[in-house]
Write a protein that binds this DNA or RNA. Structure first.
Length: 315
DNA sequence: AAAGTCTTCAACCGCCGGCGA
DNA sequence: CTCGCCGGCGGTTGAAGACTT
């Protein structure tokens, strides 16, 4: 087993802080500053361990802490930063003035993460969840027996005629292996970069089941991962915007992926791929969300990393 | 109104890395 | 180089409040 918890020794107090304890800690730090957390509680007359004092101060008592609900801009920044930094809460917090890592972590776990899951987005990879996607997509394609969709399903499943099984076991095997591949687990931001402008999404590599979303308009980049339809062929469609970092810090996760599955494609112009400051209205997304919640989700998940967030050091 | 369930978030825990001896 | 201390980090817990039945 690990070492004993630091607060177990000497009968130090645990649990919620009282207003009196808070005041003692505030008074002491205002007078002496904080430095040696190990000796601080004793000097301040607190029956707490140094760790507990540090946590209480940094997460709650610090004067520069901004309390209250997260703003739209803050939430947007958290999602953007998380897509780059992963669960580096302290690094994310460092870029959100007045917010603590604990607060951001809690907010992510209780709000953002759940919303992403509801929308079929893996909150870890910020990619569509293949475990949901593959079956729903495949079954969705096969669930109506009109001619075009049967053609689609036979192509999807590699069949040549006659009634094919709904799900090719090989596809499921492939999906399982992709889901469990080490590369998929890799959260190192380096993993997001590629020598080409757009990273090949490892999620979709080597799949033969993809159905291209055709984009005939050279001025419009398809910004959609077709949850409700079949797979986009990321490999073959040169105009498809892939959900990974580019070299100019734009993270082109398809807004429609996060947008709640309206089924309609959404578009952005190529010019919008340049970095745009937070709060800017320069983005030229056209979203097709149908509900307030979906619209909100769609908006906040446009992955453009503003310059001021300064994530380059993590690249 | 009461009981059960769900959600939130402050606080704790153990691990890790930096640093000085 | 090794060891121990300390601060910091991310994951997890559990009490309390909110919500539902």
């Amino acid at each position: 087993m690990g070492r004993a918890p630091c607060c177990d020794k000497n009968g130090l107090k645990k649990g919620p802080w009282t207003p009196e304890e808070d005041q003692k800690l505030i008074d002491y730090i205002q007078t002496h500053g904080y430095g040696n957390w190990r000796t601080l509680p004793k000097n301040a007359g607190l029956q707490r361990c140094g760790k507990s004092c540090r946590l209480r101060w940094t997460n709650y008592l610090r004067p520069d802490i901004k309390r209250g609900r997260f703003s739209f801009e803050e939430e947007e920044a958290i999602i953007q930063l998380h897509s780059v930094l992963g669960n580096k809460w302290s690094a994310i917090a460092a870029r959100l003035p007045g917010r603590t890592d604990n607060e951001i972590k809690n907010y992510w776990n209780t709000h953002i993460r759940k919303r992403l899951l509801r929308m079929g987005i893996d909150p870890v990879t910020h990619s569509p969840r293949l475990d949901l996607l593959d079956l729903s997509s495949i079954l969705g394609c096969c669930s109506f027996y009109n001619q075009s969709q049967m053609n689609m399903s036979t192509r999807l499943l590699g069949g040549g005629g006659g009634v094919q099984p709904l799900v090719n076991p090989e596809i499921l095997r492939l999906a399982t292996s992709i889901m469990s591949s080490p590369q998929r687990e890799n959260q190192n931001p380096d993993f997001l970069f590629h020598e080409n402008q757009y990273q090949q999404p490892p999620l979709m590599q080597n799949t033969s089941v993809a159905e291209p979303v055709m984009n005939n308009n050279p001025n419009v980049i398809i910004d959609q991962f077709p949850f409700n339809g079949c797979f986009t062929d990321w490999q073959n469609n040169a105009n498809a915007v892939l959900p990974y970092l580019t070299e100019d810090n734009y993270v082109p996760v398809p807004s429609n992926c996060y947008g709640g599955g309206s089924g309609e494609p959404s578009f952005r112009t190529p010019s919008s791929s340049s970095p745009t400051p937070l709060n800017s209205n320069n983005s030229t997304y056209i979203n097709s969300s149908s509900t307030e919640d979906e619209s909100y989700s769609s908006d906040i998940l446009k992955f453009e990393i503003p310059d001021f967030l300064d994530v380059n050091e993590f690249m």
